[in-house]
């Protein structure tokens, strides 16, 4: 840029002479979303969180490798036992474990930051006076949570797959139905599992976004989302409360194992996706109703 050009641009800064016409806003801009993702990914705490997410599949795979001959039963189910035969089972075992606590905690922290965090810092009032329309802000915030969910699940899946294949190799996979499927088909199904898990975490993100509009304390929002998750898992474990189970967000989160039947059992998966969608829509709308009518006094 020449000195002259720079001078002209700097001259514009500060005030607009009365009577000049405002330029039209860009109808679609991804700048705010990109800024949002930069904020999430750049935060040291979140980087540590991603390391924790990535560490678990590594620990799992190494532990299985070291105790390879021992095929005793394990909490992460059949997947971990089968990992010795096919490394692609490592990401599945890792997702089974991380969907219970670590991934929900990751999205709980991100959703706490989303609105409550900005309110707590006071940056919310400056975003709104830029102005960012409140509905647009909620849409961008939720989009960033969905992307955050995808990133978290992808980290677990990819690290699990890489470590699993490195330690145990990959090959045709023996499904739960006892039929073998090709290695690329198996990879495709692992990818589908990741998307399915991301949908569940993203639905929980909508719950978190709503809670985040209720408070100015990000930690309060995070803890609330964790309580919702843990209580849901506990209720899901009580058979006497079966009537309640279809209403729980975690109801079908573990149904992804149905993808490893031949042919896949779709009914539970579709029901699970329906529940995720319902949670996402209801809680996003609740967040919208709350946020668009709220006095911003922070």
């Amino acid at each position: 840029m020449s000195v002259a050009e720079k001078g002209v641009e700097q001259g514009e800064v500060g005030t607009r002479h009365t009577g000049s016409t405002a330029t039209r806003p860009r109808a679609v801009s991804t700048r705010l979303l990109r800024s949002e993702l930069g904020l999430i990914m750049g935060r040291r705490r979140n980087q540590m969180g991603m390391l924790v997410l990535a560490a678990l599949p590594v620990v799992l795979a190494v532990a299985v490798k070291l105790t390879a001959p021992n095929r005793e039963g394990h909490d992460a189910g059949d997947f971990l036992v089968q990992a010795t035969a096919n490394g692609l089972f490592v990401p599945l075992a890792a997702l089974t474990l991380e969907m219970t606590l670590f991934l929900p905690m990751a999205i709980a922290m991100l959703s706490g930051d989303a609105i409550a965090g900005e309110a707590n810092l006071g940056t919310l009032r400056y975003l709104l006076t830029v102005p960012v329309n409140r509905t647009r802000l909620l849409a961008v915030k939720y989009a960033s949570l969905v992307i955050g969910a995808l990133i978290g699940v992808t980290i677990v899946t990819v690290v699990g797959a890489v470590v699993g294949i490195a330690l145990f190799g990959a090959g045709p996979m023996l499904t739960l139905s006892g039929v073998q499927i090709g290695v690329w088909s198996a990879v495709g199904r692992v990818a589908l599992v990741a998307l399915y898990c991301a949908a569940g975490i993203a639905a929980l993100g909508a719950v978190g976004l709503f809670v985040s509009t209720l408070t100015e304390q990000p930690m309060a929002a995070t803890v609330t989302v964790m309580i919702v998750t843990i209580v849901s898992w506990i209720l899901l474990g009580v058979n006497q409360l079966a009537f309640l189970h279809p209403w729980l967000i975690v109801d079908h989160w573990m149904s992804f194992s149905d993808l490893f039947r031949e042919p896949p059992l779709w009914s539970n998966l579709l029901q699970g996706l329906g529940q995720d969608l319902a949670y996402a829509v209801v809680f996003w709308l609740a967040a919208w109703a709350r946020f668009t009518s709220k006095d911003i006094t922070s």
Binding site: A22, L121, G122, T123, R125, Y126, T129, P131, N133
Partner: peptide, 21 residues
């Protein structure tokens, strides 16, 4: 607000920014 606020610069109740940026 959508049309007006872009022409308005404001400072409300003290500064507020992201501390680690």
């Amino acid at each position: 607000a959508g049309e007006t606020l872009p022409r308005v610069g404001s400072l409300v109740e003290g500064p507020a920014f992201h501390p680690y940026l």
